[in-house]
């Protein structure tokens, strides 16, 4: 049954063309950036901003719009003898999969087209794609969580935008404030831990620290790279991103199961 729900949702997403448009837009931006910059590292830094800033915003807005637009469809499913768990999983995956396709087309294809055949490039682009995939999953499950908890579409969109602002801007502002206030103490490790509590920061760090930019930045940069630039660091941070994707999903699921429609 889950498969069927995913299939219908998937086809619906493709039919309304927004994902296709997103994929094309990403493709144009990414290949433009690859053409503009002489070194791929600079391209990746610019791409990074798209991946961790634009993609979350799009995913949040998308998730909420899709949930509310298919309100009647969800009601229809609910009256059928289908488990609510299956409905929720189906809906989430049904929107995630087309999004991932759009990402693979928009980022992955330019990465292949302008590829430099070195191990470093392959690793960096794999990490970038994985971060993109995870950040879209994180924010789609957050969108569903918000949508399940709010009755009103406008309110949900408001909450979504606030969530995005918090993760993308406000949080870093608070980190900055904290660092300035506690500048008398060694702050490298606390800063890293703080950034683990924000998927946007965490994603950015994983990509940056595998681009050799941070090694040029002296002691702190090297220290950060020691933590995040090796296999263990990368694995742990991807696991953390996984937690960031699954916790909102589970919370949303819990509410969805009990919710009185």
């Amino acid at each position: 049954m889950i498969i069927n729900i995913i299939k219908y949702q998937f086809l619906d997403m493709i039919k309304n063309r927004w994902t296709i448009l997103l994929g094309l837009a990403l493709f144009l931006m990414a290949s433009g950036l690859f053409r503009l910059h002489e070194s791929y590292e600079k391209t990746f830094v610019s791409l990074l901003n798209i991946v961790i800033i634009l993609v979350p915003l799009v995913c949040l807005a998308f998730g909420i719009l899709v949930y509310y637009n298919s309100g009647e469809y969800i009601l229809f499913l609910l009256v059928q003898p289908i488990e609510r768990l299956h409905i929720y999983i189906g809906l989430t995956l049904g929107i995630m999969l087309p999004m991932l396709l759009a990402l693979f087309f928009g980022l992955g294809v330019p990465m292949m087209l302008f590829a430099e055949f070195s191990a470093k490039y392959l690793i960096s682009s794999a990490i970038m794609l994985l971060v993109a995939v995870l950040s879209s999953s994180i924010f789609i499950s957050q969108a569903f969580l918000i949508a399940v908890y709010t009755e009103d579409k406008t309110k949900a969109l408001g909450v979504a935008i606030f969530t995005w602002i918090t993760f993308a801007i406000l949080y870093d502002g608070l980190v900055l404030l904290a660092a300035i206030n506690f500048s008398d103490y060694p702050l490298e490790l606390p800063m890293l831990i703080l950034s683990a509590f924000n998927p946007v920061d965490l994603g950015r760090l994983i990509v940056l620290l595998n681009l050799d930019i941070a090694t040029l930045m002296g002691y702190s940069g090297r220290l950060y790279q020691n933590y995040l630039g090796n296999h263990i660091g990368i694995t742990v941070s991807f696991l953390l991103l996984g937690v960031w994707a699954s916790v909102p999903f589970l919370l949303g699921l819990r509410k969805f199961r009990k919710k009185d429609f």
């Binding site: 830094v45 990074l48 901003n49 961790i52 800033i53 993308a168 801007i169 949080y171 870093d172 502002g173 980190v175 900055l176 660092a179 300035i180 500048s183 060694p186 702050l187 490298e188 606390p190 800063m191 890293l192 703080l194 950034s195 946007v200 920061d201 950015r204 760090l205 940056l208 930019i213 941070a214 930045m217 002296g218 002691y219 702190s220 940069g221 950060y224």
Partner: peptide, 13 residues
């Protein structure tokens, strides 16, 4: 002044 803040390098903020 505060090298630990390198953690915010290239962030949107």
């Amino acid at each position: 002044e505060n090298p630990a803040l390198l953690v915010l390098l290239k962030s949107f903020f």
